[in-house]
């Protein structure tokens, strides 16, 4: 049997000492264009991700999950609360490096795959003499060895997303943010990518905050899941998944857990209208 630790309906975890990501009481409002009125996108959200863990936020589309990732990445402002990201422990002091994999690959089509990875390396001030080694290693890791000089538009959607993952990993991130990275891919490609991602991460070991609307993906990948409801975005449940890795997507324990969580989702979403 899966040991599934369920917590009370609304949880406010205290950020732990070694949390790589600690979000406390975060609130974000958008003002409606042309009016004074504001609506709350993210309502009093707290979460923490311990170093080296794979934590997923699951919620319906348009519930502010991407906004939350953008705030953590530092590319969107917020109204109140606090967001803290920390570098890996035991490394020399540095600004935490954050790798980001978006829903669409967001590659620069005028640059080769190597050029796209080098863009991130240059942005992060990685010394130039390390570039070639990192590009070759990361492309090999995502299964695109030898594609250095190819252009993104010559690659399939799945391969483009692999380049985006290689770009994010090349900066050797302390934290990897992933925003529904497989949702644009066909089911078979996505499944293969999830398997490969597990293999890649077993080696690179960054802290991961992953966002998805797909519960089966969430239970397969994560150490822990935050369940988020919409309008406004609020976390209503936290679930730890203590199943050993490597996992199989058909594992009955995962399927059971998924079914339970789906039911819970529906009851909460219907309850709030």
């Amino acid at each position: 049997m899966a040991r599934v630790r369920s917590q009370p309906e609304v949880i406010r975890p205290e950020p732990m000492a070694c949390a790589a990501i600690a979000v406390r009481d975060l609130t974000k409002k958008f003002s409606k264009p042309g009016t004074d009125s504001q609506f709350i996108v993210i309502d009093d959200v707290s979460l923490s991700v311990e170093e080296g863990r794979f934590v997923t936020i699951v919620g319906p589309s348009g519930c502010g999950k991407s906004t939350l990732l953008n705030i953590i990445a530092g590319i969107e402002p917020y109204d109140s609360g606090s967001v803290q990201v920390s570098p890996r422990q035991g490394t020399p002091m540095h600004e935490p490096r954050i790798g980001y994999v978006f829903q669409s690959p967001r590659l620069l089509n005028w640059l080769t795959t190597a050029g796209n990875i080098e863009f991130a390396l240059e942005a992060q001030n990685v010394p130039r003499e390390q570039w070639q080694e990192r590009v070759t290693r990361q492309l090999g890791m995502v299964g695109l060895a030898g594609q250095e000089r190819n252009y993104p538009l010559k690659l399939s959607g799945g391969m483009q997303q692999r380049v985006a993952i290689a770009r994010a990993l090349a900066i050797e991130p302390d934290i990897l943010l992933m925003d529904e990275p497989f949702s644009h891919l066909d089911a078979i490609t996505a499944r293969k990518m999830r398997f490969d991602l597990m293999g890649i991460l077993a080696k690179a070991k960054p802290t991961i905050l992953f966002v998805t609307h797909d519960l089966s993906e969430a239970v397969f990948l994560s150490d822990r899941i935050y369940m988020m409801k919409t309008n406004p975005a609020r976390i209503f449940k936290e679930v730890a998944i203590d199943l050993p890795r490597p996992r199989k997507p058909e594992d009955p324990r995962l399927l059971d857990l998924e079914r339970d969580l789906v039911q819970e989702f529906f009851s909460v979403l219907e309850g709030t209208g």
Binding site: N70, A73, G74, I75, I98, G99, Y100, F102, S104, R106, L108, F119, A120, E122, A123, Q124, R167, I171
Partner: peptide, 16 residues
């Protein structure tokens, strides 16, 4: 704009 966000997320300097 999504490419600009990508660049900013990777902390690209303005010149880059």
């Amino acid at each position: 704009g999504s490419l600009i966000d990508m660049g900013v997320a990777f902390k690209a300097q303005n010149s880059l």
